[in-house]
Design a protein around this nucleic acid. Structure first.
Lengths: 221, 221
DNA sequence: CAGGTCGCTGAGAGGGCGCTGAGAGCCGTT
DNA sequence: AACGGCTCTCAGCGCCCTCTCAGCGACCTG
């Protein structure tokens, strides 16, 4: 683990040890590079903001030296780099500070077990979140109750957020590939979602692309 | 790999082979186009300065032909093109000469690992971009709302950018092969596009070729 | 300069697409 | 059996998109 904030580092270290991990802790980028090159770890937890050499550089260097140990990056929410950068740089997973300790453990176990990335479990678009595991939808932290159909539709839109998806695509994925009813159902359910997701918050996350279909804004409208 | 400097090419080839890659080497843009179109590679290393057809043209042609193999471009430090161009044209990564061999290997591995999911299928002409998947059009980073017809017309022009296309060709492709209405529709829609794409930006991406048809500037006007 | 052709432009009619409210069918629960 | 929730159908409506048309200007030719 590479982390320079002492209190946070010590807390996490103790927690991980209790959870059964053997933890080695270094405090800056230089030590991180040396340790990771010389030793072999199951997984590396790497903070971005570090003394001497930042996390970004550390990762780049490691990959450059052929070190392919799975890396979980810790990113500050308002940092200069964001999650996208983390993935682009070859990180296998990331967490945004502040993070839930239990989530950290889960992600680390996943990385070790698979030897590969576990994509973030929660789908996000702006202040709109959908957690498939808990089947829970929130907007601005407020839970929103959805029927199964509404939920399926929203999940589909979120998984294609930013893309324009046609009514036919939606019907085939959310309804049935052999659905032969009135395609107007989609419009009706889009409306239901808008009534629950947009209207109470004065936003418009779901955009109509006339003649083409619908599009969910990446930034949540 | 596409590289014309023999010594560099041979060095890199040997290194990549040692690192476990199977390498095919061609020396100019023409061979590159042929090889990349006929065969299927995990990743393409493409130099910019090449005999016959330069790297940019090669990339442009490949993307135009629907070849979406990841491409890593090699750019000269003081070259007339820079990295921004590389990304704009649809390169997936780039390295500036001289480059660290280990970094090259790392980047190639990253490109191969990343593989399929997030490939930008974007048509570009200067500062004008069209993303078919997202059905999104931007000029200078600013999104532009188009109706289906306008969008279809612009997509057609972009796919033939640099070429002069006749009104009849346009009618057959964008409208209907059996369209028998007033060909003046094309002029009308060209106008709509100009009003949305050119006028607000003081440019003229769409050129009229009197007696022949229309032409979209490759560099966006 | 006159005449013709081609492209540009503004206005407007028509239709198609998406939105909406109501309600019927189906299911599980009480 | 009655009720409520969910799903889907349907038909009306309003707006945006599409296309037509006619006048005008630009360009070429004699």
């Amino acid at each position: 683990m590479v982390e320079d904030e002492e209190r946070l580092a010590e807390t996490v270290r103790r927690g991980l040890t209790d959870a059964g991990f053997v933890v080695e802790l270094v405090h800056d980028g230089e030590d991180a590079l040396w340790a990771a090159t010389e030793h072999s770890y199951d997984v590396i937890v790497l903070d971005i903001m570090l003394p001497k050499v930042n996390g970004y550089k550390v990762l780049e260097q490691l990959r450059g030296r052929g070190v392919w140990t799975p890396v979980l990056m810790l990113t500050a929410k308002d940092g200069e780099y964001d999650q996208t950068d983390a993935f682009d740089l070859g990180a296998d997973d990331y967490l945004t500070k502040p993070f839930s300790f239990l989530v950290l453990v889960a992600r680390l176990r996943a990385l070790i077990r698979r030897g590969g990335p576990e994509r973030p479990v929660v789908l996000v678009a702006g202040d709109l979140t959908l957690d498939p595991a808990r089947r829970r939808v929130e907007r601005s932290g407020e839970e929103i109750a959805l029927t199964p159909r509404e939920y399926g539709l929203l999940e589909f839109l979120l998984r294609h957020r930013g893309d324009t998806v046609s009514k036919m695509e939606i019907l085939e994925s959310v309804w049935d590939p052999a659905f032969d009813g009135d395609p107007n159902v989609v419009e009706v359910y889009i409306r239901y979602l808008r009534l629950k997701l947009d209207a109470p918050f004065g936003r418009h996350a779901i955009e109509t692309v006339r003649g083409m279909g619908y599009r969910l804004d990446s930034d949540g409208g």
